[in-house]
Every structure is written in structure tokens, then in C-alpha cells.
């Protein structure tokens, strides 16, 4: 069910005119309407106030690395969050599916932003309702921005991961963690240093974090995630043993790491 949506978003990118920096509020609202329709067809997308918030800097300091944070407020059970960067060539940056070990406190990641654009985080509740939070971000050029790191160095550590779990509980029984994945996440818009040809797209398609039998989250990703994706999340004491992370990229390469969960300090 999700793949057709991705496809729809990809098709949409071909059909819609490219967003421009000088696009006005009306044009941005129209873009969001079209995008909403492509993603959710005729389903109603409600105002997310009281359900979901989206934080992002008003002006990005680095268009290739724009930190965003989604907060899910208590009261509704959200099973999925869609992250959309409306003006990007492929607007759907990621779809988070949550499992029983996920704590909906806050969730952060980093995205590329290609134009002055609206961003949306859409929460889908267990009973199938949709709630959207919106932000406007001033940034440009993030999709074709050259990778910051030395490409040779970056290739050496491709697929490496780090996971850090905060020593103490962050709130209640939930614990905060940060996952870093070394991956160029090439979106096919960067140019090779030697050949001057476009580097073929090689990007992360899926990041799945589980503990024992319990899913924390499964992120279906796309080319709008930053190079070296980073995800901060909270998990509940459901499931046992280490946190398992499985990353699949668009070349079908699979990277798997298990991380012991350190004992709580208190």
C-alpha cells in the first residue's frame, strides 16, 4: 500500500512544475493540495494542532542538512508519520511506521531541502485519521549540493552505524537514542569528481529498528534524507536484548548491526 504512494509522489514530481524560490503563498498552498491528493487521494487531512507538531529552522544553515523534529502529543495512537518536503524533486522524504516499542515523545532526522518550501508531517492514527503539521523553511540547493565529506573517506565507512542510548530514562520508562548511519545517500543529482558525470543514485530505502520481536520503527526512506542519515527516537522497555538495526539501500545492499542497550544509570 505504501509503494504505490511513493510511486504517486514520484510521478507527481514529474508532472508538477518545479518549485521556484519566488513561488508565492498561493502557489505553495496549491502544491500542497496537489501533493495531498497524490498521497492520500480524497481522504480528509485535518489540522494537526493538538496531535502532531513539526519543528524546523525558519532558515536552514545548510540546505543539505536541515534538522527536523516531529512531536506526537498524547491522546491519540499514531501508527504512521509521513514526512514531506513539498518543493523537493521527490517530496516524500520518509514514512515512519511505529511498533509497540516506539515511544511517541519526539522523533528527529535531517533532510535535504531544495527550494524555499513548505514541509509537512502527517500523522495517521490507528483509526485511519490524518493530521498534518506544517512549517515553512527557507533553504535552497540542498538536493544537488556536493557531499560535504571527502568522497573517498565516505566510501570507506559506507554502511557503518553508531547507536547511542542515553544512560537515564528520558521520561517515564522511555529511553532516548540516536542512530547514525554512514551512507552518501546519493540522490543522482551530484556530480562525480573525476568523470564529471552524475553519480548514480544510491540511497537508503529502509531503516528498521527492532528489539527482540518488538518493532520500534520501520522507516521507508527516499532521496530527501541527508547524507549520513541521523535519527533520534525514544523506545519503550518492550522486547528484550539488543536493538537490531537493518538498513537496506537502493542497490539491495543490506547492513545489519546489533547494539547492546546499556543499563540505566538510575
Amino acid at each position: 500500500m505504501i509503494r504505490p504512494l511513493l510511486l504517486a509522489a514520484a510521478l507527481l514530481a514529474l508532472i508538477l512544475p518545479q518549485a521556484r524560490a519566488d513561488e508565492d503563498d498561493t502557489a505553495r498552498a496549491e502544491r500542497w493540495n496537489d501533493l495531498k491528493h497524490a498521497m492520500f487521494q480524497d481522504r480528509k487531512v485535518q489540522d494537526g494542532a493538538g496531535v502532531i507538531t513539526l519543528d524546523a529552522p525558519a532558515r536552514a544553515l545548510d540546505a543539505a542538512l536541515v534538522p527536523i523534529t516531529v512531536t506526537l502529543l498524547p491522546g491519540r495512537t499514531v501508527k504512521t508519520v509521513y514526512l514531506l518536503v513539498d518543493g523537493n524533486p521527490s517530496p516524500l522524504a520518509g514514512t515512519f511506521h511505529f511498533g509497540p516499542a516506539f515511544d511517541p515523545a519526539s522523533l528527529s532526522t535531517r533532510v535535504r531541502v531544495d527550494q524555499y518550501t513548505l514541509m509537512h508531517a502527517v500523522a495517521e492514527t490507528e483509526d485511519g485519521q490524518l493530521f498534518a503539521a506544517e512549517r515553512f523553511v527557507k533553504a535552497a540547493g540542498g538536493c544537488s549540493a556536493p557531499s560535504g565529506a571527502d568522497a573517498v573517506e565516505a566510501a570507506k565507512r559506507l554502511g557503518q552505524m553508531r547507536l547511542r542510548v542515553d544512560a537515564g530514562p528520558s521520561h517515564g520508562t522511555a529511553r532516548a537514542a540516536e542512530l547514525l548511519i554512514s551512507h552518501p545517500n546519493n540522490n543522482g543529482m551530484q556530480v562525480d569528481q573525476i568523470s564529471h558525470l552524475f553519480i548514480p543514485a544510491r540511497y537508503i530505502e529502509d531503516i528498521k529498528v527492532t528489539r527482540g520481536d518488538a518493532l520500534v520503527f520501520d522507516l521507508e526512506a527516499d532521496i530527501s534524507l541527508s547524507e549520513d542519515p541521523a535519527i533520534r527516537f525514544h523506545f519503550l522497555p518492550v522486547g528484550e536484548g539488543p536493538l537490531d538495526v537493518v538498513v537496506t539501500d537502493s542497490t539491495r545492499a543490506v547492513f545489519h548491526r546489533s547494539f547492546e542497550v546499556p543499563a540505566k544509570s538510575s
Partner: peptide, 14 residues
């Protein structure tokens, strides 16, 4: 400064 910190942070975290 904020841009510098962002660029340096993503380098130093690895």
C-alpha cells in the same frame, strides 16, 4: 557561525 557549527558537527560526529 551557525553554518560553521553545522558543517563541523556532521564531520566530527564520525
Amino acid at each position: 557561525n551557525g553554518h560553521n557549527v553545522t558543517v563541523a558537527f556532521k564531520e566530527l560526529e564520525w
